[in-house]
Structures are given as structure tokens and as C-alpha cells.
């Protein structure tokens, strides 16, 4: 609809919207996270949902214990190699549409524990991440910012056309292969479908 007409109508007390806006508005204001903490960052996540920061203002205070009822996975903390298959399995159990926030340096890249033999160097190796939050641990404000970023992202999704989100594309995968425990490392060490080491050009 034409913007001018819409504002004219709203002056007259008639509110118009599109189905797409309504749909996304509803989705973005009730993102239910999975109650799922891995390490230190999870404590900041809990702090963010408590009275002082009050995540409820963003419609996301309902931490669901079951992945079947959640829309958002906050990977809050270090993903170890022993835990990675479970994280992927939990993601697979979530219904579409689903989003992932990687909270903290560890979930992004291994963070301070990067050099550990049992630490996964970033959850992007197995899962598609929507928002990354740097920090160790990120403050609750940073988590709120990530929420708002995610909400904006949801709000801007077109429901038709080539740019439509993954859950509306019938042939797009909604489950990812779960890595297996090997003798020395996880097998495979990364999911090549969604993660390739980006080209880094480095001068000597």
C-alpha cells in the first residue's frame, strides 16, 4: 500500500498492515529460547532474564526446557567436543523456524580455551548462526542487543521470493548431521555443507 495513504488512514483511526508485517511482528515478539546453558556465559544469560535486565520486555522470558517448544537456541558457553553432538541433536529437535545466537567468545571461536584439545573452535562448524555476541562473558546488555538484532532480522524477512527464510523453502535442510566420536577427534571435524574455512590472505 502507498505510504501516504496509509498515514492518512491512520490519522483517521484506521490501522492497516500487511499479512507479512503482522506475521513477522507476532514472531519477533515471542521468541522463546531454549533453557540451555553450557558454561560461564549461561550465568550472564540467567542474569539477563532476571529482574534487573528483564528479558521479558522482549517477549523472550519463557525459557523452555524442551527443544520441541523453543524457537531460539542461545549457545551460551564453551562447546566442547564431547558436548557438540548433543548441541547439534538439540538443534535438530527444534521445530522450524529456529534461530541460533552464539553467545561469547567460546561459542564463536573457542575463545580463551581455543587451544584445548577438547574444545570445539566455534559452533559455526556444525550449525548456522544468526547472531554472534563477542565478549567473555558478554554483559547482559550485549545479550539484549543481540535479541534486538535478531528481532530486526526476523522483522525484515520477506515471506515470498528468493530471499524467503529457510523454513519456507521446502527443500532446505532443517536438520544437520550429528558428528560422531572418533578415536582422536570428532568425525567429521566440521560440517562441510555449512562451514568452509574462509580464505584468509595474510602477508608475512
Amino acid at each position: 500500500m502507498d505510504e501516504g495513504l496509509r498515514s492518512e488512514l491512520s490519522k483517521q483511526g484506521v490501522f492497516t498492515t500487511t499479512l507479512e508485517d503482522l506475521y513477522n511482528w507476532g514472531r519477533k515478539n515471542s521468541v522463546w529460547p531454549l533453557g540451555f546453558g553450557l558454561a560461564c556465559c549461561a550465568i550472564e544469560m540467567i542474569a539477563a532474564s532476571m529482574a534487573r535486565w528483564d528479558l521479558a520486555r522482549f517477549g523472550a522470558e519463557v525459557f523452555r526446557p524442551s527443544p520441541r517448544q523453543a524457537d531460539l537456541m542461545i549457545v551460551a558457553g564453551t562447546v566442547t567436543k564431547k558436548m557438540a553432538p548433543q548441541v547439534v541433536r538439540l538443534y535438530n529437535q527444534m521445530p522450524e523456524p529456529k534461530y541460533v545466537i552464539a553467545m561469547g567468545a567460546c561459542a564463536i571461536s573457542g575463545g580463551p580455551f581455543k587451544q584445548g584439545y577438547n574444545v570445539l573452535k566455534g559452533i559455526d562448524r556444525y550449525l548456522p548462526v544468526d547472531v554472534h555476541i563477542p565478549g567473555c562473558p558478554p554483559r547482559p546488555e550485549a545479550l539484549l542487543h543481540a535479541f534486538m538484532t535478531l528481532q530486526r532480522k526476523i522483522d525484515e524477512q520477506a515471506l515470498t521470493g528468493a530471499q524467503r527464510p529457510r523454513h519456507l523453502v521446502a527443500e532446505a535442510p532443517s536438520e544437520f548431521p550429528v558428528p560422531e566420536f572418533g578415536a582422536h577427534d570428532l568425525v567429521p571435524p566440521a560440517n562441510p555443507e555449512i562451514w568452509q574455512p574462509p580464505e584468509v590472505v595474510r602477508g608475512e
Binding site: 564431547k82 584439545y117 566420536f181 578415536a183 582422536h184 577427534d185 571435524p189 574455512p197 574462509p198 584468509v200
Partner: peptide
């Protein structure tokens, strides 16, 4: 107790070689 059962190495030994997954280091 800490590593998975299929794991074959003893990682705290001084001569342990860790898996090489440093392919992306910005």
C-alpha cells in the same frame, strides 16, 4: 571419566599431539 569412551589418547601426557583444527584463524 572426562573424555568419551572411544577416545584413544592420553591428552595430559607431555608428548600428546592435539588434533589440528586451526584452519581458520583470523
Amino acid at each position: 571419566i572426562l573424555m568419551w569412551d572411544e577416545f584413544r589418547d592420553f591428552p595430559m601426557r607431555k608428548d600428546y599431539v592435539e588434533p589440528d583444527d586451526y584452519e581458520y584463524e583470523p
